[in-house]
């Protein structure tokens, strides 16, 4: 799916990525995994859909972080504790039981350069993996002992490449859920150390 398709489908509201199939797959999977006493961080929370859903369904405290100020506002209005952040940069070491992330993952040309917040929400650089890789470089630091990551990946990003990169950072990956669409298959990876 391209950025223009999304823009057309969603009309004028293109400041913040609205929940789609990927958001729902991640939220449903996280609701099965997260315990009520977990502290959870949802990176790139966007509308706050995943963070709010997981918080309501599990009783866990779920923070939402996003680079986009409009997303932070939307998430906050949805009842999510929002922090404007670059990935996990402003969070303490050994803090979160679970970190969820539905990253921007389209290769840049697939999302047609838009130079707006929706492009930031969709694209992960030329490979589609730049944001995911930056996330994997730092996320281990903020995980509490026994903590894990729930990461949504698409066949458009290259699931094996993401698994290999996570492996180099000390994570082993288990696929918890997947959902196939005509142009891509979405998978939720659980990354444990």
């Amino acid at each position: 799916m391209t950025g223009d398709d999304l823009a057309a489908r969603r009309g004028v509201e293109t400041d913040v990525y609205d929940p789609a199939e990927d958001s729902r797959l991640l939220a449903d999977t996280a609701c099965e995994e997260v315990a009520a006493d977990d502290l959870v961080l949802d990176v790139g929370t966007g509308s706050g859909y995943v963070a709010a859903t997981v918080g309501e369904e599990t009783g866990a405290r779920v923070l939402g972080a996003d680079l986009n100020p409009h997303a932070c506002r939307r998430a906050c209005d949805a009842g999510v504790e929002a922090v404007r952040a670059d990935l996990v940069a402003p969070f303490r070491t050994d803090t979160f039981d679970v970190v969820t992330f539905n990253p921007p993952y389209l290769p840049a040309d697939a999302a047609a350069a838009r130079d707006d917040w929706m492009e930031v929400a969709l694209t992960g650089g030329e490979t589609g993996r730049e944001v995911v890789e930056a996330f994997l470089d730092d996320v281990e630091r903020v995980l509490a002992p026994g903590g894990y990551v729930l990461l949504l990946v698409s066949t458009l990003t290259g699931v094996d490449d993401v698994v290999d990169y996570a492996g180099e950072r000390g994570f082993s990956a288990v696929a918890l859920a997947d959902h196939s669409f005509p142009f891509e298959t979405l998978t939720v990876l659980k990354l444990v150390r």
């Binding site: 309501e56 923070l63 209005d77 009842g79 504790e81 929002a82 952040a85 402003p90 969070f91």
Partner: peptide, 24 residues
């Protein structure tokens, strides 16, 4: 979506966040 409305930053967020530059 629940009717809970976040007013602001909870004070105990101070136990969770740090300086993004040097982590202090």
């Amino acid at each position: 979506m629940a009717a809970t409305h976040a007013h602001g930053m909870k004070r105990d967020l101070m136990d969770i966040v740090c300086c993004p530059l040097d982590k202090h």
